Amino acid sequence: MSDLADYYRQRATEYDAVYEKPERQEDLTRLRDLLPPLVAGRSVLEIAAGTGYWTTALSSSARSVVATDLNDETLAIARTRSYGPGEVRFEVADAYDLGAIPGRFDAIFAGFFWSHVPRADVRRFAAGVLDRVERGGVVILADNSYVEGSNHPITRSTPDGDTYQTRRLSDGRTFEVLKNFPTVEQFTADVAPAQVSWTDLTYFWLATVSQ
């Protein structure tokens, strides 16, 4: 994951360009409409918050949001945004060590991080997330669906089922980035025996998980 963290650290200033793709605007609006009712009145732990793009939607209805990321470079950008009315604070934290984050949370949100978890680590990561949410709480995940021509092409696959893309930054540097695209069946098996509600959009999917 250190290579992935380095990629997003280097990409911090151009992080949000992906949200400007014209063909994705309708889906993005839909996602931003779907999220607030799911976290209304809740204490939210956000995993891999990046530049805070999704934190703005969460804070519009949540009681509070602790937005975490491994990279302070992306959180530095997140701190410049406007939030509320829910209280928002930022923490540098490892998504694989959620127990180190202080507080009690009845909702956990991970936007566009599940796809970066290696297949070999998925069940361990899912268990760590589900263990961290309070009883009666909900885990919410959103991520990309693969659409030819909109997503970066898959350039490598592994026997474990991981797929990779080659990403290029504006300065010409290239990175190989893990990016998986689970089906609803695969995702449901990965979080079993938790219950899953799944919403398919054109370019994205949204899942809520409860025990």
Rank of each mutant, 00 (worst) to 15 (best):
P159Y: 08
S170W: 12
F105N: 00
R168M: 12
G41I: 03
D200C: 07
R11T: 12
S157K: 15
S60I: 02
E20D: 15
V88H: 06
R42D: 06
I154C: 04
A76L: 10
H116S: 00
R119P: 04
S150K: 10
I154S: 00
F105G: 05
K179I: 10
W198R: 11
A5L: 13
R132F: 00
E73G: 08
D106Y: 07
R173F: 05
A17S: 15
M1I: 12
Q186M: 09
T80P: 07
A57V: 02
V66T: 15
I108Y: 01
E46R: 05
Y164S: 10
Y146I: 08
T202I: 02
T51A: 09
S64R: 15
Y96L: 08
S150D: 15
N144T: 09
P153C: 13
L206F: 06
F125N: 02
M1G: 15
V92K: 10
Y203K: 06
Q186D: 13
T174A: 02
E134M: 13
I101Q: 07
V138M: 03
L70R: 08
R32K: 09
S59V: 02
H116K: 01
L98F: 09
D69P: 05
D97P: 04
Y19H: 15
A62L: 07
T174I: 01
G137T: 00
S115T: 14
T183Q: 11
S197C: 09
T80M: 07
T74H: 01
A12F: 04
R135Y: 10
H152R: 14
N151M: 14
A12S: 14
Y19V: 09
F125H: 05
Q211P: 13
D27T: 06
R135V: 14
D160W: 07
E26T: 13
L130V: 06
T163C: 06
R81I: 02
T199L: 00
K179S: 07
Q165M: 10
G136I: 08
G111H: 03
T174G: 03
S61C: 06
S2G: 06
A142M: 04
Y19K: 12
V138D: 00
Y7L: 11
A107F: 01
W54E: 03
V65K: 03
A5W: 13
R132D: 03
